[in-house]
Simulated assay, not measured.
Amino acid sequence: MKAITVRNNSGRSFIRWVYQDKRYSLTWGLWADKVEKARLEYCAQIIYKDCLVGELDTTLTKYRYWLEGIVSSSNGPVNGNSNSTPKQTYPALIELLEQRLVDYYNVADENLLRHLRNYKKVIDTAVKAKDFITWLKNKGNKSSSQKRYLTILKILRKDLFGDIEIKVAEKPKPKPFTTDEIDRILNSLQTDQYYSHYYGFILTLLNTGLRISEGIGLRWGDLDLQKREIHMYESLGRTRGNTSHRERRTTKTAKYRIIPVNNKLHDLLQDLYKGQSKEQLIFTSPTGKVLDDHLISQRC
């Protein structure tokens, strides 16, 4: 069974899947609403797992209740009656977040989990939810971090955190390198005594817009030199609990992309290719290990 992905359906977030040769679909929230879209993405994971173990609620009641912020005590219609009001039982926030981390590891989730454990108070009302956000602020968390935590909390418990808003001062827009600056960077790097090894990696990032983890994880099998294309669907992200180690996973957006390769990059990659296996990384450290982006950014 293929993973269930959220799609845009006339401005609404929408999922569709097949279970036991029957088609199902579910629509929830506006496509432009990132929090509601994320809730549907998380719900899609629940549906996917239920399908794999043969426990899909074919009425979809369980999943609609979950999206509303209600966890039903049954798998399907409550007491056999689809018109019954479900018992509103909620797992603790820590439990919900631990489960989310199993499915999708993120540093922000990990930090939020640490804060929840340190808080040591039950959060089961909207008032207590606001108290927790105030506590985060008083602990010295930046407003941008608070907002990121709040987004996660809204995905997990919209009923508690849905009405809370955090304003973040607008940051100045980043000023990208000019073409002249890029040329100067690459020219300097190409002839540098210590860091010329990383020229190809930096050139690739600047010519494709790949994320750092995507560039690090790029393999020869992802490249089609004849068609001049990079096929991007995986990255080499940091491992939970061990940032010095990386593991292969889908890209940040979990979307498959085809990236065109221009002449300059094509010439470079053609020169680098020596008949390596498809599984071999294109860019490695001077000793053949996985690239360390911290070393590159801080030194190179």
Score class of each variant (00 low, 15 high):
residue 298 Q to W: 14
residue 88 Q to V: 10
residue 269 L to I: 05
residue 160 L to I: 07
residue 109 D to I: 00
residue 297 S to W: 09
residue 215 G to V: 06
residue 160 L to S: 01
residue 104 Y to N: 07
residue 285 S to N: 06
residue 248 R to V: 12
residue 223 L to I: 12
residue 261 V to F: 07
residue 230 I to W: 00
residue 209 G to R: 15
residue 83 N to F: 07
residue 244 S to Q: 09
residue 95 E to Y: 15
residue 276 Q to Y: 05
residue 56 L to N: 10
residue 138 N to R: 14
residue 38 A to I: 08
residue 161 F to D: 02
residue 72 S to V: 13
residue 47 I to D: 02
residue 258 I to Q: 03
residue 86 P to G: 01
residue 111 N to K: 11
residue 117 R to Y: 05
residue 2 K to E: 14
residue 95 E to F: 13
residue 235 S to R: 04
residue 45 Q to L: 11
residue 223 L to A: 01
residue 264 K to T: 03
residue 167 K to H: 07
residue 96 L to E: 11
residue 197 H to E: 07
residue 213 S to G: 14
residue 149 Y to F: 06
residue 164 I to G: 05
residue 290 V to E: 14
residue 52 L to V: 06
residue 102 V to A: 08
residue 172 P to G: 14
residue 58 T to I: 01
residue 153 L to F: 01
residue 156 L to K: 09
residue 201 F to Y: 15
residue 19 Y to N: 04
residue 35 V to M: 03
residue 141 N to I: 03
residue 29 G to H: 13
residue 227 K to A: 09
residue 183 D to C: 02
residue 131 D to K: 13
residue 46 I to C: 13
residue 291 L to Y: 00
residue 251 T to Y: 10
residue 47 I to E: 07
residue 297 S to Y: 10
residue 7 R to H: 06
residue 178 T to A: 15
residue 188 S to Q: 14
